[in-house]
Design a protein around this nucleic acid. Sequence first.
DNA 1: GGCACGCTGTGATGAAATTCACAATCGCCT
DNA 2: AGGCGATTGTGAATTTCATCACAGCGTGCC
Lengths: 215, 215
Amino acid sequence: MNSSSSSPKVPIPTLERLATYLRFLIDLEASHVETISSTDVEKQTGINAAQFRKDLSYFGEFGKPGVGYNVQELQARIARILKIDQLQPIMVIGAGNLGSALIGYPGLTEHKFHIAAAFDRDPAKIGCLQGNLMILDEADVCTVNADIGARIAIICVPASAAQGVADTAILAGVKVILNFAPIILRVPERIVVRNVSFLQELAVLSYHLSSDTKK
Amino acid sequence: MNSSSSSPKVPIPTLERLATYLRFLIDLEASHVETISSTDVEKQTGINAAQFRKDLSYFGEFGKPGVGYNVQELQARIARILKIDQLQPIMVIGAGNLGSALIGYPGLTEHKFHIAAAFDRDPAKIGCLQGNLMILDEADVCTVNADIGARIAIICVPASAAQGVADTAILAGVKVILNFAPIILRVPERIVVRNVSFLQELAVLSYHLSSDTKK
DNA sequence: GGCACGCTGTGATGAAATTCACAATCGCCT
DNA sequence: AGGCGATTGTGAATTTCATCACAGCGTGCC
Ligand SMILES: NC(=O)c1ccc[n+]([C@@H]2O[C@H](COP(=O)([O-])OP(=O)(O)OC[C@H]3O[C@@H](n4cnc5c(N)ncnc54)[C@H](O)[C@@H]3O)[C@@H](O)[C@H]2O)c1
Ligand SMILES: NC(=O)c1ccc[n+]([C@@H]2O[C@H](COP(=O)([O-])OP(=O)(O)OC[C@H]3O[C@@H](n4cnc5c(N)ncnc54)[C@H](O)[C@@H]3O)[C@@H](O)[C@H]2O)c1
């Protein structure tokens, strides 16, 4: 109904699934599949066919009745919707266990995310290379980001330091934050935060063990 | 209304929030706060007060009208609901970047999760120590788990290997799976899977950059 | 060419989750 | 002791999300 320029209210779950579709389509493209129908998607991903069509419908019309969707084209259009059709620079703050894992993760580049800079406060880490990325001083976040222009920050510092580095990142021009620290960040209205909580995931799983009480 | 023994239909979002409450309560307890009201929770976490009360109401009555909730007691009861009131054994499969970060993560123990064993297929890693945990051969998952009795598995192997190790884990008696590989696992009905997808999170964030087109 | 089939896009319907609103309860203060 | 402000627990209303169902179009087949 409306083009990708200004979509008024796209449900968050739809956005989450778009990323799943994108991944799926990339894999399909690698397998040289040219066309796919919503029913095929349902068979292979378990996501309801109507759901898939409705998700796409928020952004325009993509498919041909009687045929389906062109894999390559759809993949490109979803990437555009998600603003990852060209390299999207990211800053990582905290180069400990988790931060290092992210820096070394090739999957990010595959999806056009680019870790442009990584920061830490530990003098033993500053100046060291991780892969081909040098760890920078967290005090320089603002000046460095004036060059880099990252609008996405990933926070991988201990909970006690998370609010502080979030504030700094926002000052440096970051618009959205992926937070791995187990606290709820206080940020201005306009800033979007998403939290990743392994503990939360594990807790939900752990709860489900209850049904197997027999054994 | 019904006790913690057999709750018929607890919404998943409620379970996710329970973990958040738990974390929050642990921090409160460390700050020697004894009592808290649902409105306080709203102020400090941003979660609606009625939501908080309704979430708890699925599991019985916890608070006192006019007063609020006893922090310590509530914390203990949520832990019990989530089955993490005593150490919950977990197996990790794949001791690469991400698996290693998890193995070295102290936050797990803090929440009564215990990584009882870690497996890999790489001969260079098998037999090595990470922290005080020895990496075991992935071929031994079944025999080892006969001793350990882990019902939770965390999958940290490449996407191409994920389905295989999931099958193995299920054979070994695992009931629920936390999957970090970017694929949709095919598992029997009774098995609960939760996927953690950093790319999905980043994609949702990246999408939101659109609204800041002015500058 | 025309007909029949398959698939899309979407309004209508249904389910689920969140928020509202208030009666019931508690502890405190006088 | 009794009334009052504060806070809980929860049915009802609202909002959000998922699914259904079908009109309409495109393609290929006869
Ligand atoms: N490791 C995991 O598997 C895991 C899982 C879930 C959540 N987390 C969370 O992710 C965060 C990071 O975990 P981790 O295991 O990598 O911890 P870590 O201790 O290995 O690394 C934290 C890093 O942050 C740096 N740091 C501290 N204060 C800083 C500051 N003000 N500015 C910049 N850098 C600073 C430290 O020097 C260190 O290098 C924590 O909040 C943790 O709770 C980790
Ligand atoms: N590193 C990250 O930050 C990150 C982020 C998001 C998702 N992931 C996903 O998590 C998974 C692991 O990522 P990683 O960075 O740790 O990769 P990695 O390559 O560092 O580690 C993978 C490990 O799995 C082992 N392995 C391979 N096949 C195996 C098998 N059949 N049985 C047992 N072990 C096996 C390998 O030997 C290796 O040690 C991948 O699916 C990746 O897409 C990683």
